[in-house]
Design a protein around this nucleic acid. Structure first.
Length: 870
DNA sequence: TCTCCTACGTTTTTT
DNA sequence: ACGTAGGAGA
């Protein structure tokens, strides 16, 4: 980590002004310190406009992070604030790390002194720990993740005799999350909404969930912000303290903020004022009835109320029911939000695009700066992306431009089915590789993760190195959560959830019956589960076997707790894992991923070194633990469009542009037009990830949940500008032939797409289908029509697909032919292990290509370097 | 208490 | 089609 101290130490600022000289310093900004050089005028404006609210609309690839970090450097070098007086929030740890890193580079050394640069949740959590007692918590409270949350809710549902089949805990967790995202405490949830769960019990369950959290000394992610908000509202003195501390606020990805985050920011961004003077603007209705249970301090009703988001009302309507005369301009201080409404893709988890669309309303006098110069993509790619996103209505409107050359056109390629799509992309990647492209500069961005499988299969077969980005987070893996549960029980004996998780892991003969008994005991005596266990062991309520094992468990934990005093926390963790039999459990496990799990456990112990002690480790683990890195090797990246946000690659493959998949039918059903716009933004994000090549694909047939469906090309294809797009032919090599028999009945489903009946996309699909399904008449009427909708270029049109269809059934033929001929070090019927497919037996060898019958995954062709002897 | 079978639910993801 | 979670039976 880096240390950043006083502004005077900043190297890249040769002769800055002393701390008091802010104004003078600004006056000479036109000369400008070194770090400002290389910024374009808009960027520079965004960096130098330090006073008042600023919204920077930063399109994709316009240097957003650079602006943010340079702005911080500027604030520091101008002596306007010390590092600890700048609040700088991001959404992800990755983004926070990136900023720290860039800042460190820019400043030459130094960043540990930015204590308030972090994610919303980590900063919210830190504030909450400081005032934990005001939320009936202790400062060492546990942060529960979704899993713990659901288990806790399950217990509540059981206690309330609610049928979990009808009212799943997951659903309740989702509702509660949603309420918290909107800044609603139990008493503020509109009664109609609270009633939808379990015949009106929803609100009560939320309330008792909160109570249980306090008893467990735990908070969920939502609480990290919501409890802050409550504390700020109920304790103006504390709020003022933070308002005074933070001279500058910077927010990254503002378009992704939810209501709770907005409220949190708003509270902090008001200039500190003496209580009698405070007159914050009220957003939403003034002290609505839902505010009833809250209140107390005179300030409470003045400070804003959570808006009740009402998608139906126009955005203006829900605003400011306060008369203009009453609405003094809030004293907002220096807040700078950076975002891009065109990249808002998290509406489904509570992000309010409205926050950014309404910025200048919420922060009157805001200066809006648009960054529209794109430094990433070539002309064609940028034009395609811009044209696509221009179909959205609810935009602030930006026009991205580039000074780069046009480059290659965006390609659109159709394939018969998803397998051919994967095959074709595989070939194109190999071709790019031959042209000297780095695999690290190639990414495949899918809409849904199930699309990844086909590519993985294909790449394994080809021996093409790839890496999946995203997927389950490190600390979400079962073995990590188990290990953490052990440590949590050691650290805080009242952590019932953790104790319950590992009481019978590994198997100790302490099953449901025992746990139930402990629960009863604990509830009766109002003591934690662990203490109940200790007490029960002294009685003869349990069968001797269970009693013995429970006694051992209690004794073990007592011993570990004692050892904690004298043992380094990493050593302790190792001891716990060994003595508990947990490591052994996985060593004995013969399943495919056991080895990986043991590896993960080692990694966990290693990662503990970065922390001072067990307590510190546990406090941060759920907030900052990251997925395993190891991105050293040259490999193709495979990820969802969502996880691609913020990344860029020379070559981007965008498969699966089909109605129903992309745009996702479900989003359309659930969110209607807003959903469609969000999907379109997703497309825009996908395209703008590409620097030099963007390649779009659609398949005519795709297997969804097991059954094959005929699909039609995405309407987004029709929204691409023909001048920048080229239709190409699939290089899939098509092993097509046996599958026929798609009846016309498939088209009955098309009603689902209702309004698309008349679009060129639909007609194109129909033409395709007629050719594919009937395989009789190629090139039906609508076809030329659609081709003209792309108006396109020289490339072969879709008609030529049919001629390719009947190619010989090569299956994996080419692949085998391509094998290097070197003899494999494996022999027939060798027992082998593969990272992904697990254990198996070699059934066929061809050069370095092995055919392996996997125990779990079935028969696969694999390059020998991907397996090892078992 | 453990194991096997059935039934369900399958977009996106952070903290 | 497939993986998992929860329930029923050994």
């Amino acid at each position: 980590m880096i240390r950043m101290t006083e502004p005077s130490k900043i190297t890249s600022v040769p002769d800055h002004q002393p701390a008091a000289g802010g104004i003078a310093a600004r006056a000479r900004a036109s000369v400008g310190p070194k770090y400002l050089s290389g910024l374009n005028p808009e960027q520079r404006d965004a960096v130098e406009t330090l006073d008042g609210p600023v919204l920077v609309l930063a399109g994709a690839g316009t240097g957003k992070t650079r602006v943010l970090t340079t702005r911080i450097a500027h604030i520091l070098s101008q002596g306007r604030a010390r590092p600890a007086e700048i609040l700088s929030v991001t959404f992800t740890n990755k983004a926070a790390r990136e900023m720290k890193h860039r800042l460190g580079q820019m400043l030459g050394h130094a960043v540990e002194g930015m204590p308030w640069l972090g994610t919303f949740h980590s900063i919210g959590g830190r504030i909450l720990r400081t005032h934990a007692e005001l939320a009936q918590l202790k400062s060492n409270f546990t942060v529960l993740d979704t899993d713990d949350q659901v288990r806790l809710l399950k217990q509540l549902l059981q206690a309330d005799n609610i049928d979990e089949k009808r009212w799943p805990a997951r659903m309740l967790a989702g509702l509660i999350d949603g309420w918290k995202n909107r800044g609603l405490t139990p008493s503020q949830v509109p009664s109609g909404e609270a009633a939808v769960f379990a015949n009106g019990k929803g609100g009560k369950l939320y309330a008792s969930y909160q109570e249980r959290l306090k008893i467990l000394n735990a908070a969920d992610f939502g609480d990290l912000l919501l409890e802050d908000i409550r504390i700020f509202r109920e304790h103006p003195d504390i709020l003022r303290q933070y308002q005074q501390r933070f001279k500058f606020i910077l927010v990254d990805e503002y378009q992704d903020t939810n209501v709770a985050q907005y409220l949190w920011l708003r509270l902090l961004s008001q200039a500190p004022a003496s209580p009698s003077f405070t007159s914050p603007r009220v957003r939403g209705e003034v002290a609505s009835q839902s505010d009833a249970g809250e209140g107390g301090s005179p300030q409470t009703e003045l400070v804003e109320t959570a808006p009740q988001p009402d998608p139906l009302s126009a955005s203006g309507a829900r605003h400011d029911s306060v008369k203009d005369g009453e609405r003094e301009k809030p004293h907002v201080k220096n807040i700078c939000c950076v975002g891009d409404d065109d990249q808002s893709i998290y509406g489904w988890r509570g992000a309010e695009v409205d926050n950014i669309l309404r910025f200048d309303h919420d922060f009157p006098g805001a200066k809006v700066i648009r960054l529209e110069r794109n430094y990433r993509s070539t002309g064609h790619i940028l034009a395609a992306a811009s044209h696509l996103i221009a179909h959205n209505e609810g935009r602030l409107g930006k026009t991205l431009r580039t000074e780069d050359h046009d480059g290659e056109k965006v390609t659109v390629t159709g394939s018969w089915d998803s397998e051919e799509e994967a095959r074709g992309i595989g070939e194109e990647i190999e071709q790019l590789q031959r042209q000297g492209e780095k695999l690290n500069e190639i990414a495949i961005l899918v809409r849904a993760s199930y699309q990844m499988r086909e590519f993985e299969d294909r790449f394994v077969t080809l021996g093409l190195p790839y890496r999946v980005i995203g997927g389950p987070r490190f600390y979400e893996r079962a073995e990590i959560r188990d290990a953490l549960a052990y440590l949590r029980v050691i650290n805080s004996p009242a952590d019932d959830l953790a104790f319950e998780r590992i009481i019978n892991v590994p198997k100790r003969g302490l099953g449901d019956a025992t746990v139930q008994m402990l629960h009863d005991h604990a509830r009766k005596r109002r003591i934690p589960l662990f203490e109940a266990a200790r007490a029960v062991v002294e009685t003869d309520e349990l069968k001797p076997k269970a009693r013995g094992s429970l006694r051992d468990v209690v004794a073990q934990f007592d011993r570990w707790r004692a050892q904690r005093e004298v043992t380094a926390h990493t050593d302790l963790a190792q001891i716990v894992l060994d003595e508990s039999g947990y490591t052994e459990m996985w060593q004995k496990d013969r399943s495919a991923d056991a080895a990986g799990r043991l590896e993960n456990l080692k990694e966990l112990v290693r990662s503990m070194e970065e922390f001072e002690n067990l307590q510190g480790f546990l406090e941060h683990i759920s907030l900052v633990m990251d997925r395993d890195g190891g991105a050293e090797d040259d490999a193709v990246s495979l990820m969802t469009l969502h996880s691609a946000k913020g990344l860029e690659f020379d070559n981007v493959f965008l498969p699966g542009w089909e109605e129903g998949l992309f745009p996702s039918q479900r989003t359309l059903d659930e969110q209607g037009r807003a959903g469609l716009e969000e999907e379109r933004r997703l497309g825009h994000v996908g395209l703008t990830r590409a620097r030099r090549r963007a390649k779009i694909y659609f398949a005519t047939n795709r297997r969804i949940h097991g059954t094959w469906s005929t699909t039609i090309p995405s309407r987004f294809l029709d929204e691409l500008p023909s001048a920048n797009v080229e239709i190409t032919e699939s290089k899939g090599g098509s092993a097509w032939g046996g599958t026929g028999g798609y009846g016309a009945s498939r088209f009955d489903d098309m009603e689902a797409f209702g309004s698309t009946y008349s679009t060129p996309g639909w007609q194109r699909a129909q033409a395709n289908r007629n050719r594919g399904g009937g395989r009789s008449g190629g090139g039906q009427g609508g076809f030329e029509e659609q081709a003209s909708s792309f108006s396109s270029s020289s490339g072969p049109d879709f008609g030529s697909f049919s001629s390719r269809r009947r190619g010989p059934m090569t299956i994996e033929g080419e692949l085998v032919a391509k094998s290097t001929g070197t003899t494999s070090e494996f022999s027939l019927s060798d027992r082998v292990f593969h990272q992904k497919f697990g254990y198996g037996r070699v059934t066929k060898i061809d050069g370095n290509k092995l055919t392996i019958a996997f125990d779990k995954a079935g028969e696969k062709k694999v390059v020998d370097s991907f397996v090892q002897r078992a």
